[in-house]
Design a binder for these strands. Structure first.
Lengths: 232, 232
DNA sequence: CGGTCGCTGTCAACGCGATGAGTCCCGCGG
DNA sequence: CCGCGGGACTCATCGCGTTGACAGCGACCG
């Protein structure tokens, strides 16, 4: 869940933000002043910060500087002042966006999405799955031996294009049964529905490469007459 | 030098932008319509795009979509329309910021700086990597022989522009598989998707220049049917 | 209880596509 | 005018995908 730190001294605005953000499935952390904002940021490590510049205890740019001293978290600034000099100061201090009050909540949410989208692509971390003695990284397309695995197992395993395609469909449906027809269509295209020998062949290859005992698979399972299943 | 693509159909605004950007040491490329914008982006590979939504030939969000199809370059949208629905549409289409006309040039420049700052921190992670007997410095664009390397290897290696572009994409994704399509689009632009012979040619050149045994690459690896991978 | 059928796992061989390397041509800049 | 880098084409080679055959196993039926 994406965590948003909202910093503002107006309870009404805080409340409105909390309602809107929660409704959009964000996790919300709030702070009412600059010191509280820095504390909350350090404690909760938010994914994005919405910062009102008109805080009672600190200057807005100082809050930005305090955050930028140790984190690159995206900062969206709210301010009642529309003066362009204020905007330039805040942006050059390290803010990523600047919205003047009064603002449209839809626009604010769109700007938040834009910021989150950009910071997400930086840290695009695809979940890694473990099969047998190996760690499978779908994004990097790598299979590495896990630490603690027997020495004679290869350090890295090479999977071919089709092997990846089959494995990916199974791994993306963890614990769920995938019918043979569904697998064939996803990997080979809609025209392939009955070539179950392809599946047998590639499941055998995957089990040989990944399972400790290929003849007694524990994670790449066959459901006779139904299909295949990846058990995480 | 940071390259800015400015897309607008008003010559006056183009002129003003060019003057301001040039004065601030940016390299400026301009386009007057959507088709020209996509062409110019593919040809010049700008570091940031300033895009007017009111273009004569295409809808603004289509231009954004056309760019986002192959590049993550930051996009700052200019628009005469202050309607929040327009802003939401543009931002959700992939824009990073939205400024309504008339605007303050100082503010626009500050917002550009904020976008560039963020995209720089994304890409400027590891400036130096080692390949074979050489140290590759992406920032300085130099390849130097490492200490301890055999004497007969050249002290310095010269890479051409395209060679750098290919190498850079690979090195910026260490250990991850990069598909041939992705490489082609990032280096040659969106129109190139199937010219895999270019890739073979330049990968061969890079391997000849960097790998100790060009015919048995150890770090610039081919994944048959899938793409290429830089192994750190 | 035995036989047969259907499904699955395994294996070897073939053909094709992708890859790597070589060569030529063209445009551009010195 | 020449040299260099980039693009386009060709060809030999290798690995992968495809294909078919065959054995093992369990279920169902006679």
């Amino acid at each position: 869940m994406i965590r948003v730190l909202v910093v503002d001294d107006e309870p009404q605005l805080l409340r409105a933000m909390r309602i809107n953000l929660t409704a959009r499935r964000y996790e919300v952390v709030v702070a009412a002043d600059g010191a509280g904002a820095l504390d909350a940021a350090a404690k909760h490590l938010p994914d994005v910060v919405v910062l009102d510049l008109g805080l009672p205890d600190m200057d807005g740019t100082d809050v930005i500087a305090g955050l930028r001293g140790w984190t690159k978290v995206p900062i969206l600034v709210l301010s009642g002042r529309a003066d362009s000099a204020d905007k330039v100061d805040a942006l050059d201090a390290g803010a990523d966006d600047y919205v003047t009050k009064p603002f449209s909540m839809d626009e604010l949410m769109a700007r938040l999405r834009a910021l989150i989208r950009r910071s997400e692509t930086e840290t695009a971390a695809e979940p890694a799955v473990t099969i047998g003695h190996y760690t499978v990284d779908l994004a990097a397309k790598t299979v590495q031996r896990r630490s603690g695995a027997p020495e004679q197992t290869p350090e890295q395993v090479h999977l071919t294009k089709t092997e990846w395609a089959v494995l990916e469909v199974l791994v993306r449906n963890p614990g769920r049964l995938v019918s043979g027809k569904q697998l064939l269509q996803q990997v080979w295209g809609p025209a392939y529905q009955s070539e179950t020998n392809y599946l047998r062949f590639y499941l055998a290859k995957l089990r040989q490469k990944l399972e400790p005992e290929p003849s007694h698979p524990r994670q790449l399972l066959t459901e006779p007459g139904m299909g295949y299943r990846f058990e995480p």
